[in-house]
Design a protein around this nucleic acid. Structure first.
Lengths: 339, 339
DNA sequence: ATGAAAGCGCTAACAA
DNA sequence: TTGTTAGCGCTTTCAT
């Protein structure tokens, strides 16, 4: 292993000079800088991460806590994760992967052992037991999602309230007057995961604002559950022409169910999904959808963290605006009076 | 921050004694051990990871290199990843997440800076540029998947050859004589990803061995591509009654296509998928399938790594046996002579 | 069975 | 502008 001392010797300078050339923390004459850099390259020197961390009290590692549960959409999580890693690397940091099943103890462990400098915590629930821990931690953290009590915490998320409202507005603009939200399985609501709740809120508020009917129902992932839920919905609301879906696994089967029930999309039923773009584009017809900007959220989370580590201040809550892409699954309301 | 010196002082012993109590690397009198442990708890002591790593030359961190590409099935990757983290924790290790886009340099970086002790590399291709690097690295590594030139490397994977053969045997046992493999998009084959190639090999060999017709075709993810591929297949092989699918995203649309073409599953066409269980169970009818034992693979990879770190030896290649679960999508061949 | 002390490789005062 | 050196907190020889 080649050490900083080897480099210093090779370049004929002190170790501190090498250190300062590398960190840029003090001015170095162009001449020595050049000599040192040449030696670094010649010897293939890489600073030892542990030694650096021990001396500087900075590991340059961020913790990423990912959930390990059902109901979450996995590809989106993966997008978060890769965005977090990619962005972290952009700021010369690495990412330690933690699963949520270690719970609050896991956070304390990596923090107190100085393994990491900061934390990104995904899939935060409304009443998350990790939240009080995070608040007391002597270390910056950013939550993806947000809890009921978010004081003193930094949160980043899609503005799901706006997303729910955006779907209603889109359908209302097309002339639909009777809408339903097909949500995540009830277990997700019971866990009080923020995003599901908030979409529902936005959906309901917008329906009132637009003066349209807006009913909501959770939906399990099995085909039978979907069939039953939709049948029930159509029975209770025969004039239903607009459907909002926030539940990726059911999208395919749902299209099947509608076909089977003789409802054509979009002629008889307009559909808007809140899901990843690739999923929306894979369907027949392609789905109008609100994208979850996973990359942007992950990037934003890390940027906030880096700013905090540098002593800067960031907004407590960054809600990223949703964007709706209209595709083939939503169309103007077919006026029955002319039919 | 509580240091080992604080604990030593509190317990009235030398720091080395505390260290040895914690590591168990020398015999300690029950009395002192007890006193030290009490002090550790009383002060809430956690060893500093950097200091420990610097002194012991062991970071207790494994690198997990995940791919960042299309064509791979994301939920399965996620299962790998969580299994790797969970198993690593079982052995008191943490996991550093690297994306494949850093390439060979990324590996060298984390290795040479002593950030990690060992590497798990996912989605290894037949001719992977990271393979020569891994072979030269002064550090144990385990590949998930395996390359053409695997000498001196440790690989863990599902036995895809056996998986392909298992599907053929299952269908042949049911009396089907004309089978087709609907594979991954041709891009995946061109990248020469091992698993796709190997499934094909097993499929073809088993077809010959069983004396049945076995044709193979890649398949893109779009609905039109699937429709076209299946139509072509049925045109070329009118007596086709058995389909093997190794391409998760197309499973749903494929069922649609078959329905649309008037082929009932399993009455007219038996279907076996190589995919995650939850995907198979979500379909109508539920799919007979060969599961990718992602958890087991991740676990096995880490176990091998830990063994290697301890100086033990492990098999060069661990091929995990596939298991087929028969569900509703495969049935005995309907003999046309009696129809 | 325990202690004393020399590093591990680096950073950042402090000096010059 | 550069060098000297004292730690950072721990592990592990070497002593006892």
């Amino acid at each position: 292993m080649v050490t900083i001392a080897d480099v210093a010797r090779h370049a004929g300078v002190a170790t501190s000079t090498v250190s300062y050339v590398l960190s840029g923390k003090r001015t170095i004459s162009p001449d020595t800088r050049e000599r040192v850099q040449r030696s670094v390259r010649a010897l293939g020197y890489r600073p030892n991460a542990s030694a650096r961390a021990l001396a500087s009290q900075r590991s340059n590692v961020l913790a990423l806590v990912i959930p390990l549960r059902t109901g979450m959409h996995v590809p989106v999580m993966m997008q978060f994760a890769t965005a977090v890693v990619t962005t972290a690397r952009r700021f010369d940091h690495d990412v330690l992967l933690l699963t949520a099943d270690e719970g609050p103890d896991g956070l304390e462990r990596v923090v107190q052992s100085s393994l990491v400098d900061a934390l990104v915590v995904m899939d935060v629930e409304l009443h998350d037991e990790r939240v009080p821990v995070l608040r007391e931690l002597p270390m910056p953290s950013v939550l993806i999602g947000y809890p009921e009590e978010a004081d003193g915490l930094t949160c980043v998320d899609l503005d799901f309230v706006a997303a729910g409202a955006l779907c209603v507005d889109h359908l209302a603009d097309l002339g639909h007057r009777s809408l339903a939200l097909l949500g995540t399985p009830s277990a997700v609501y019971e866990r009080q995961t923020g995003f599901a709740q908030r979409t529902l809120t936005g959906f309901a508020e917008a329906a009132v604002r637009r003066g349209v009917l807006g009913v909501e129902t959770p939906c399990e992932h099995t085909f039978d559950a979907i069939l039953h839920t939709v049948e029930q919905l159509l029975r209770d609301h025969p004039d239903l022409t607009g459907l909002v879906v926030q539940n990726e696994p059911i999208i395919g089967p749902l299209l099947d169910v509608l076909r089977r029930l003789g409802r054509r999309v979009p002629e008889d039923m307009s559909l808007v999904a809140i899901c990843a773009d690739d999923v929306a584009e894979r369907q027949v017809p392609q789905l109008s959808s609100v994208t979850i900007p996973a990359e942007r959220i992950g990037e934003q989370a890390v940027e906030s963290l880096i700013t905090k580590l540098a002593g800067g201040s960031v907004p407590d809550l960054a809600l990223l605006p949703p964007a709706l892409t209209a595709r083939g699954s939503s169309a103007p309301h077919a006026d029955r009076t002319t039919a």
